[in-house]
Design a protein around this nucleic acid. Structure first.
Lengths: 152, 152
DNA sequence: CATTATGTGGGGGAAAGTGGGGAATTGTGG
DNA sequence: CCACAATTCCCCACTTTCCCCCACATAATG
């Protein structure tokens, strides 16, 4: 049961965003509509069904507290993780601070990414996409082990 | 049942800070509103429910006394640990000394971090956050083992 | 073309956050 | 032991934010 595909979405003046209808039933079933949003290093937002998030949070919390990298990750991810539920119309309210972080304006893009969804500002998304195509090609000779023998 | 998410919070002239409503019931239930505040190496404050703190304190006390790092940690954390309770309006009063340590002015930020909460001066938090995003990306190729295979 | 589903916008009531006055408590110095 | 000062706590009032509900626009379906 994974998320995939891309949606154009409007963010209204109050910071609300309509969840696409095809996801609503699944979300209600999987977690009673209880979601968690947090931020990503690439300045987009991540949306998890609560149970999925809890697994991740558990991993993060148990990282060594005296390691600097760990603390940074914890503060970024757990620190910004916000519980939210869909309202009667199947919308979610994105906290002001997270909208700022992701540079969200009126037009946004929602992308299915397996266990999670990603929310991007439309403009940012368009730009980043071009960069990635180039970046992936440039780095081809230089893959980590886990990617070396990936067959698509 | 963990703390997560971020809140903007005002610290008034008397040094009081309103605990966000969504935490209040949990805190009353978990520990009768009895909390412990102390300081962190990164110049923010840490807030624990009393039972959680007692576990931590026990670990700290049993660190090897002849190790310099241990002694520093003990003095920093145990030395600054202060008991406090929420008042009738769900606010806590932060001791002047701790406010100074964290450079708290009128505007502060409260972030959930699993078993504990962190309190930051707003400005400090904003600055640090930018640095972290860069730091995390810059060090990507150079992660501790615990982070290597973290899948979000 | 009519009808239903989906997306979008806004108004208003309730709840949470904020700030200050004054009583009670604690602590300090005489 | 008393007097004074500083701090802490409780209460009230104000402001802001959030959330529920209704209404309309737009798109999909028969």
């Amino acid at each position: 049961m994974h998320f995939r595909g891309i949606n154009n979405i409007a963010v209204d003046a109050k910071g609300r965003m309509a969840m696409p209808a095809r996801y609503r039933d699944r979300l209600l079933e999987a977690c009673g509509g209880r979601l968690v949003v947090t931020v990503d290093q690439d300045h987009c937002l991540l949306v998890y069904p609560l149970p999925e998030w809890e697994v991740i949070e558990e991993k993060l919390i148990n990282l060594p507290s005296l390691n600097k990298q760990s603390r940074l990750l914890q503060r970024l991810l757990i620190g910004h993780a916000t519980d939210l539920e869909m309202d009667g119309q199947g919308r979610i309210l994105l906290p002001a601070m997270l909208r700022e972080y992701a540079g969200l304006k009126k037009k946004a893009v929602l992308i299915g990414q397996g266990k999670k969804l990603e929310i991007w500002d439309e403009e940012t998304w368009a730009q980043s996409q071009e960069e990635w195509v180039e970046a992936v090609q440039a780095d081809e000779g230089n893959l980590p082990a886990a990617l070396e023998d990936l067959s698509l």
